[in-house]
Amino acid sequence: MSVIATKALEKRFGRSVALDGVDLTVEQGEIHGFLGPNGAGKSTTIRILLGLLRASGGEATVLGMHPWRDATRIHERLASVPGDVTLWPSLTGGEAIDVLTRMRGQRPPARDRARLLDAFDLDPTKKGKAYSKGNRQKVALVAAFATPADLYVLDEPTSGLDPLMEEAFRAEVRRVADDGATVLLSSHILSEVEQLCSRVSIIRAGRIVEAGSLADLRHLSHTQVSWEGESGSDAGAPGLADVATRGGRVVGSLAPESVPTFLVWAAQRTLPGLTMQPPSLEQLFLRHYGSTDAAPDHTHGRHARTDDPER
């Protein structure tokens, strides 16, 4: 059974539509990347899954339960990190960590907590107000990873972290996944998702526009080809699309089914410095959010919120 399953999930705020039929499936034990630009509906989806918001339509289950009605029972088995962490100004970071883990019903072993504080290089004795953005984020991360849970819901958890800390974060995500937990990781840092996630869902203007394993998605996407040469040296290349010449190189892209015939064609001539790159997540992403269609798609009757539903 899926750990998270939504079907045609909708959320309206007044007249604006934040979610317009989200179908999201996260299977047991996977690290699932949840990608999308600002305002696409990532946080709104996650808040519905956490029972903070009530869906306007559609269905959702988390750990087989209803996210609104069974919120507290779900939360006993879940740990989460919001994208924008606010700490209590009068509580220290260490106190905030204990408050959050105890409110999850857990008393994590002291050595786990100490190990995490060390891994994230966090001073737990400072008052909440004294922490920088990255350190506030670390407080929430320590509180989440100190909690043994079946499901971790992480909403852009690494915003404000430096690269060393991002590495510590990836190590923790792998650790909990190795222990059998499921992770939903919302992000727009593609390299992070590429390194961690086995499957991804891409949301745009309140809809999932692409979902599958990274391998599947790559298969669907185009391979980038380039070699040193003048324009015209691609004459007759089978299946090559989007051809252009930049900096003395011919560049183009190939649909997956055109790759074999292109290779046969390429083998029959000299193409100096030929490179072929599998599609990166970035290209997948840009294909869905490229500058030409980054604007909200009003022609289909969808309305992206003009204010920022992330907040």
Partner: peptide, 23 residues
């Protein structure tokens, strides 16, 4: 200056009631 504080929370500070009292 904002002073530092305890690294661990008091035992009562783990329930909504304890938190509300503290705040």
């Amino acid at each position: 200056r904002e002073r530092g504080g305890r690294a661990r929370a008091h035992a009562l500070l783990g329930t909504p009631l304890g938190l509300a009292v503290r705040l």
